[in-house]
Design a binder for these strands. Structure first.
Lengths: 251, 251
DNA sequence: GCCTCCGGAATTGTGCACAATCTGCGCGGT
DNA sequence: ACCGCGCAGATTGTGCACAATTCCGGAGGC
């Protein structure tokens, strides 16, 4: 204050949502971008300019910057120093690794679910059936985006039932990265989307024939991976840049 | 890192390691803090003031802020809005989940290692034996910090041998969180630190008796967890705050 | 014709100043 | 004496200005 008040500030912070959920603003954007990537509105390799995103979400550039940092650590976007943020384009190797990691984790989850006391709780049954219905509806309506989103949610739902939030959290990231891999390597032709697999899985889980649900899950994941074209021929351009740039945070 | 000179005259990016200097500064700090937490120089619940850290590492406060955000997403520190960053203090539930997640992942890793063609490559054998020697030396010298660090590295080494960088990355986080759990729940008394377990594990791996190494790994992890005191009695203070504060980024 | 070099524009990176919020402590009222 | 209120100091949160870097296009030389 005091001296020197050259017309410059005049910012008013409209207190509209003063103490409002600060943190949630960021996670909202993270979710939003994450979904956009998952259902392929943002294909791998897309440049994510800070200012564009800031404008799109109506927030400041630093907010976006923070979000991008978060997404980068989840390997959903790739941050290249002085170059910017790009929707991650996994290598075939990484794609295979992600699916293998999923098999490892989801097998464990299924084994846990199969060990649950029977019959399953009404809550679980209802959620399973409800979800099945949603997937059926999406398939019937040929709503591709909904199907993708629901497919991810299905796996996450099972993870929650297993009661290990830590594993579920890890799986969340892996599912996002799967979506990315699918977007990057999906074959033009076939895509017998997995709603049917899910149906059988639900039935096996309810029916409780030992080992069957687990086997179906593994087979399901194998099938999804098998539908990808993971043979060489990677568009080396972006990948090389991403590889040779020092990754900001990889552990 | 002698100078903290704010002066920044004519930086020349000595290309020593390409575009690395920027990003690596942060990951250096992340590693540094991570290690300090792992070997208990920073016990759970410790307040991490931004400015103190900035001064300690000779960097600006925003750099520290970024690092804290990264560590927060790895669940190594807890970020409470307008309150600051604290070394995470896992709940007993979370501790159990982390160990279970480790069992899931490390079992898979061991099964993969056991499936490796025999004899193991010279490179692997050398690294295994070399690491064993280091652990022996640390145990002999009663160098607790070294033992903790080496113990984590051992598990990570096995993960690398398994050839799935994605799983290894996930395990890295879980190991850090294990250290945290151990720091939080270690019993005063016993701590037959696991160097002996590791020795047996190495032997089993080299010897290649089917299933033995995997079984030893599971038993090892069980044993480490069993040595913790995970009964209620949680210091609710910090945990409650962490729980009720809206978490910035949890997925 | 092609390659190289050199601006100009756009984009990212960083320090800084200030605003918002929380904690601790002392004062005054009941 | 106890409780609540409010002020002061410290700490975190955020926008902004500017520095650094990269990208793109064109002119010039071989």
């Amino acid at each position: 204050m005091t001296t020197a008040a050259p017309a410059k500030p005049a910012r008013r912070t409209p207190l509209a949502r003063t103490g409002a959920p600060r943190g949630s603003a960021e996670s909202r954007i993270v979710r939003s971008i994450g979904e956009a990537i998952a259902d392929r509105r943002l294909p791998p390799g897309t440049k994510l300019t800070e200012e564009s995103l800031a404008e799109a979400f109506g927030v400041s550039r630093e907010r976006v910057r923070k979000v991008l940092l978060l997404l980068a650590q989840r390997r959903v976007v790739t941050l290249i120093p002085n170059r910017g943020a790009f929707v991650a384009k996994p290598s075939p190797k990484e794609a295979r690794e992600v699916f293998e990691a999923r098999r490892v984790i989801e097998r464990a989850i299924m084994e846990r679910l199969e060990r649950l006391p029977r019959p399953l709780s009404d809550d679980m049954l209802e959620k399973l059936r409800g979800h099945g219905a949603l997937e059926d509806a999406a398939e019937l309506a040929a709503d591709r985006k909904a199907m993708i989103r629901l497919s991810g949610q299905f796996h996450l739902l099972l993870a929650e039932f297993a009661g290990n939030a830590t594993l579920a959290g890890i799986l969340t990231d892996l599912i996002d990265r799967s979506s990315l891999a699918i977007a990057a390597f999906e074959r033009r032709s076939s895509h017998t989307c997995s709603a049917d697999d899910h149906r059988r899985l639900i039935a096996a889980l309810i029916g409780n024939r030992p080992g069957e649900a687990t086997a179906l899950m593994i087979e399901h994941l194998d099938e999804v991976e098998r539908q990808l074209d993971l043979e060489a021929k990677t568009d080396t351009r972006i990948d090389l840049k991403a590889i040779f740039a020092d990754e900001p945070e990889t552990a």
